[in-house]
C-alpha cells in the first residue's frame, strides 16, 4: 500500500518539511539549494546508492565524512537516510547505533533525511516487526523515532520549535533508493 500521502500529511502537521522528489537529481538539487555551511554526512546505504558525497563535492560542498565528534558541534546540517517511515504519525525510524548517524541527526540545526516512500508502514504497531528485526540483527541498538523537529512547550505551554535538537527537519521522499528496512 502507498502511504506517501498520509505520511506526508502527518509529518507536515508536526512541522516537518516533506519534499516529494521526482528523481534523485531533484533531491540533490534541493539539498544543494538548502545547504549552507558545513554538513555532516555519515556513511549510509541510500546515500551511497545515489552518490551523495560525490555529488556534493562536485557542486563545491565539502561534506564532513569523518571525525564527527570534533566537527558535529559546529556543523550547520546533517544528512542521513531512514530505515523506514510510519504513516499515521509522520515518523522517521532511523537506526543510529553508528555514532556518526546520531551526531548528524541530533546536534546540527538542520536535519535532512532521505526516505524511499516504498518503506512506509501504517502505524506504530505495524512498525514493531521491523523494530524487532533490527534488534535481532544487532546486539546493541540506538534506534530513533523522529517525528518533526525538536519542540518544547515548557514555557507557558507555548509550542516552540527547536530547543535542543534540529530546528528544521527536511524529509526528502525519493523512490528507488532503498527497499531494505534494515538499512538507512
Amino acid at each position: 500500500m502507498d502511504f506517501t500521502i498520509p505520511f506526508s500529511t502527518a509529518a507536515e502537521a508536526v512541522g516537518a518539511e516533506v519534499i516529494r522528489c521526482k528523481n534523485r537529481e531533484q533531491a540533490i538539487a534541493y539539498l544543494l539549494d538548502q545547504l549552507k555551511g558545513s554538513v555532516l554526512c555519515p556513511d549510509f546505504a541510500s546515500g551511497k546508492r545515489i552518490g551523495l558525497v560525490e555529488k556534493l563535492l562536485q557542486a563545491g560542498v565539502k561534506p564532513i565524512c569523518s571525525d564527527f565528534r570534533m566537527q558535529a558541534a559546529s556543523a550547520a546540517a546533517g544528512i542521513t537516510g531512514a530505515n523506514f517511515g510510519i504513516a499515521n504519525t509522520g515518523t522517521i525510524v532511523l537506526e543510529s547505533s553508528d555514532e556518526a548517524t546520531r551526531l548528524a541527526s541530533t546536534l546540527p540545526e538542520q536535519h535532512f533525511i532521505l526516505l524511499d516512500p516504498a518503506k512506509i508502514v501504517s502505524d506504530g504497531i505495524a512498525a514493531v516487526p521491523h523494530l524487532r528485526d533490527l534488534h535481532q540483527r544487532d546486539a546493541r541498538n540506538y534506534i530513533a523515532y523522529i517525528t518533526g523537529p525538536s519542540r518544547t512547550a515548557d514555557i507557558e505551554r507555548v509550542l516552540t520549535i527547536g530547543v535542543h535538537g534540529p530546528k528544521r527537519l527536511h524529509i526528502l521522499l525519493v523512490s528507488g533508493i532503498s527497499s531494505d528496512f534494515m538499512e538507512n
Binding site: R140, N141, G148
Partner: peptide, 19 residues
C-alpha cells in the same frame, strides 16, 4: 499532551558505540 507522538522516541539497548 494531546500529541499524536512526541518528536522523539529513542530505543536504546546496551553499550552502543561512543567515540
Amino acid at each position: 499532551t494531546g500529541q499524536l507522538l512526541t518528536s522523539y522516541v529513542t530505543w536504546i539497548r546496551g553499550a552502543v558505540p561512543c567515540g
